[in-house]
């Protein structure tokens, strides 16, 4: 199966930061580290839109390509992870990432997380799944527990979807069909390529 993806439905996102906080909570990321952020377009004006952004776990992840220590790997499910023991905190990946996902805490303050930190799709990292070691370096491994990213699971309006690409595309398609309107799937094409993007619904959905 299982090509894991994110999809944020801008028609639903209300900029409540539930996703951001859920992530903080789940992984106890320190002050200053935001694996996820909420971005607003046209703030305060008619047409204002918000979207929630994190590492998109790109199909062709630029971070992987630029990392001088080759610390990135990609799981069978398409989740892009990295080994913090190899990370030298150089910041190349940050410059390469179109989403600004990699985070660099001030060194020294936060132990292991002095290294680059980013969204793991709640899949931990290359330590024993569910171990203290993994938790301290990468946060919780929800995927191994049979759960999905907490940011999406807790999203206040179910705007943010995370999981198997086919499943979440289907959820989105159903919604879009009902409202007769897609939504800006911002970042989707850039991260995953043009194929498999959920069709914006045809006009004339249920009114």
């Amino acid at each position: 199966m299982a090509r894991m993806k994110f999809l944020c439905d801008s028609e639903r996102c209300i900029e409540c930061n539930g996703c951001v906080t859920a992530c903080k909570n789940e992984h106890e990321t320190p002050w200053g580290i935001s694996r996820r952020r909420v971005v607003t377009l046209g703030d305060g004006k008619p047409g204002e839109k918000t979207i929630s952004v994190a590492c998109m776990h790109c199909s062709d992840a630029p971070c992987m390509a630029v990392c001088p220590t080759d610390c990135f790997y990609r799981t069978d499910e398409g989740v892009v992870l990295h080994d913090k023991d190899l990370c030298i905190g150089c910041g190349y990946c940050f410059y390469a990432c179109p989403f600004g996902a990699p985070q660099f805490p001030q060194a020294g303050n936060f132990g292991q997380r002095g290294k680059m930190d980013k969204c793991t799709f709640c899949a931990g990292g290359p330590e024993k799944d569910g171990s203290d070691e993994e938790y301290k370096k990468y946060g919780r491994n929800r995927l191994a527990e049979g759960k999905l990213p907490l940011c999406a699971e807790m999203c206040s309006t179910k705007a943010l979807l995370a999981g198997d690409a086919d499943v979440i595309s289907e959820i989105f398609r159903e919604r879009a069909l009902r409202r007769g309107k897609g939504g800006e799937l911002w970042g989707w094409k850039q991260a995953y390529g043009a194929d498999g993007a959920p069709e914006p619904a045809k006009q004339g959905g249920k009114t």
Partner: peptide, 27 residues
């Protein structure tokens, strides 16, 4: 990377870190 943007399985490059278990192993 240069061609960008097409969905396809991507090889791991030359990942040099620890190997990670499959997510369905532990539980």
């Amino acid at each position: 990377v240069l061609a960008a943007c097409s969905e396809r399985p991507q090889s791991v490059g030359d990942y040099r870190g620890k190997t990670d278990a499959k997510p369905y192993e532990a539980n």
